Computed example of a mutant assay.
Amino acid sequence: MPKNSTMRSADPSKRDFCRTALGTGAALLALSPCAPALAAIQAPAFPVKPITLLVPFPAGGATDVQMRALARAASQSLRQPIVIVNQPGVSGTLAAAAMARSAAPDGYTIAMISAALFRLPHVQKVNYDPVADFSYIIGVTNYSFGVVVAADAPWKTLPELIAAVKAAPDKISFGGIGQGSSGHIGIARLARAAGFSLNYVPFKGAAEVLQATIGGHVQVMTEAGWGSMVESGKLRLLAVMDEQRTPRWPQVPTLKDLGYDIAVRSPVGLAGPKGMNPQVVKALHDAFFAASSDAQFLKALEVQGQPYAHLDTAQYSRFAVTQTASDKRFVDELGFKLNE
């Protein structure tokens, strides 16, 4: 190439600029107008494949119906299918615990969280930390627990039932989901306050408890998920464990109405494994929040007498901390331990 070529004789100020640009390429790229577009290419929008939602109760139960309705609506916002996988067991904590141990924190495997997750570490050995091992996404409802008997049972009121249990404690059994669940704790508190012996039978899910109660295998159900059977006349609701009477059955008293200072709060929400990208958490929260106004989901809640109760990501994360601590205090005060 000739000595006086154009490239050799480029403006020195331009050559200095090019050297500076090459030497600080990463910084200049970050400052350039193209940076957002390049970042989007490197990090594709979430989600790009189906999402798995683990439900900790059997298929066909009230919770399963609610979660399927919610997932169908959320999948429309996310534009990806949400596949329900039922993993019942360990008082409704098996699914979340398995996810925390083995799922990648990429948002493609999430789990429904029941309130037993916060309590169980205080009553038995578990392989998860309810505060440290989860990325909490959203709270969507609260379970409504009740004291329920078959429609043809001889007891029309809770005081009548308590009197019968005191007279023949071995003949009346109470059914609920697992041991250490919200229903189990609630009825254990009532047994202590009212002074009767508790004959408690654990089941994997509400659907099993319902069938056992209707069939006479247990005499009392102390769970959520009874609404449709009470509505159809197959079960009789004697009392609710909420702070207030349920709007669907306003004539039914709370435990507090009957003189027992007992109320069970049991929020239901969604979480993923620890370490999830906040943007992925936000995408999931926003999709499920939009889905919570879906008519089928709201109808599924109404049938069971459950309220819609939204907790955003920050609120749900704080709830996990406070509920874990308060459950420990409560369990210590009650002296409740499994298999004792």
Rank of each mutant, 00 (worst) to 15 (best):
R8T: 11
R15V: 15
T20G: 07
L22C: 11
T24A: 09
L28Q: 11
L29S: 07
S32L: 09
P33A: 10
P33K: 08
A43T: 15
I51V: 12
L53I: 11
P58C: 05
G60M: 06
G61T: 09
L70E: 02
A71N: 07
S77Q: 12
I84K: 02
V85N: 11
G89I: 10
L94V: 08
A95F: 04
A104T: 10
I110F: 03
I113A: 03
R119S: 09
L120Q: 08
P130D: 04
D133H: 10
Y136F: 15
I138S: 08
S144F: 02
G146L: 06
G146R: 05
A153F: 05
P154Q: 11
E160T: 03
E160Y: 00
L161S: 08
K166S: 01
G178W: 04
G180P: 01
R189N: 05
R192P: 01
A194L: 10
Y200V: 05
F203P: 07
G205W: 04
A207V: 15
G216Y: 06
V230W: 08
E231I: 08
L238K: 06
A239L: 03
E243K: 14
P247T: 11
P250N: 07
Q251A: 14
T254M: 07
L255W: 02
L255H: 04
K256I: 10
Y260V: 01
D261M: 04
P267W: 09
D286P: 01
S293F: 14
A300M: 06
V303W: 00
G305S: 08
Q306N: 14
P307C: 12
L311I: 01
T313W: 04
Q315T: 09
R318K: 10
T322N: 07
Q323G: 00
A325E: 15
R329L: 13
K337I: 02
L338Q: 13
